[in-house]
């Protein structure tokens, strides 16, 4: 459904835009029909940048993003409008998507003006109610209310309902639950799982919470400093992580069934300047000399499970197939 081909994004930063910051570095992966893919990584790893490129809010510096085989950068006019009918985003902070001086359901009216000007009032009302019920909201409880009269979970569901009105096929969900309470979080996650199951919705689920990513997803893409360091079926990536970064992330998850091991992970390396070698080199607990100079490629360690790490070669090279 959505395919990223060696997508790169360079931002100009510094006082006069004099410095280049590579936020996304030759990232390739795809999201199939009805599939949920978790995009996981530390703060600043480029997750939101990828989501925004898929939503065409910003253009890639190089590489292509395909939707049903079409390069999205070529879409114009009606084709672009159709794209937004099928692809929508919901973001971290539900409050910022609403104007506090207007009632919250104004977001629906905007969709109607934009996409369905010919639908009758009565019919539209029915569709809105249907979308609200689909996200587990009672229309009477939320319609006609101001944003401050609704909870974060309710506001977040309203945004998902808005996306549903467009009959979307693909949703970019960027940290949609990080601002919500534990008990509300699970409801929103279950809602996304249902939409996937019932409507065949594909979702790019952006998060740094690995437990939530695991709960919902079919596959995971692990991002460090704009590079994919590991990706594959969720159970494999979480069950048998190869990359030291993936392992470090997993060991950092606060769990209720075991205590953290003593802090092996330093924060210092996070600031280290990038090298031409492995992006994780400065923080890696057991780097080789070659890790400094040469960027490891993604290799397939088992079906569909890819890892970019020089150490993989050490034991598994025989089984590995080199990938682009």
């Amino acid at each position: 459904m959505v395919e990223l081909e060696r997508v790169t994004k360079v931002y100009r930063v510094g006082t006069f835009g004099g410095r280049a910051l590579k936020a996304v570095d030759e990232v390739s992966f795809e999201i199939a029909d009805g599939e949920v893919v978790s995009l996981i990584g530390e703060s600043g790893s480029g997750k939101t940048t990828i989501g925004r490129m898929i939503l065409r809010l910003i253009p890639p510096t190089s590489g292509r993003i395909l939707f049903s085989g079409m390069d999205i950068s070529t879409l114009k006019g009606k084709a672009l409008k159709d794209y937004y009918r099928s692809v929508q985003g919901v973001f971290q902070d539900p409050f910022s998507s609403y104007n506090p001086i207007f009632k919250a359901d104004r977001v629906f009216r905007v969709v109607r003006q934009e996409f369905f000007p010919n639908v009758e009032e009565g019919e539209w009302g029915k569709r809105v109610e249907g979308a609200l019920r689909a996200v587990g909201l009672a229309p009477g409880e939320v319609l006609g209310k101001y944003p401050h009269q609704l909870s974060g979970g309710q506001l977040q569901r309203l945004l998902i309902a808005r996306a549903l009105l467009l009959d979307i096929r693909f949703l970019v969900a960027d940290e949609v639950i990080s601002m919500l309470d534990a008990s509300t979080r699970i409801d929103v996650l279950n809602l996304l799982a249902e939409l996937k199951g019932e409507r065949g919705l594909s979702i790019l689920f952006i998060t740094h919470d690995l437990a939530l990513g695991h709960y919902l997803s079919d596959r995971a893409v692990i991002l460090y400093r704009g590079c994919v360091v590991e990706r594959g079926p969720i159970d494999r990536v979480f069950g048998k992580p190869y990359h030291p970064y993936t392992r470090m992330l997993l060991s950092s998850v606060p769990r209720l069934d075991r205590k953290w091991e003593e802090g092996k992970v330093g924060l210092k390396g996070q600031q280290a300047a990038p090298t031409k070698g492995c992006v994780y080199h400065a923080r890696c607990p057991f780097p080789y000399e070659s890790c400094k100079g040469e960027r490891p490629h993604l290799v397939e360690v088992e079906p569909g499970h890819l890892v970019a790490c020089h150490r993989i070669g050490e034991t598994e090279v025989g089984k590995c197939r080199r990938q682009g």
Binding site: A182, I186, L189, N190, H214, Y215, L216, I234, F238
Partner: peptide, 19 residues
Amino acid sequence: LISSLPEIGVRHTERRLSG
């Protein structure tokens, strides 16, 4: 509150949590 927390290793298809 505690039973609504997703633990790593739990997938919605295997064990559905509730808020």
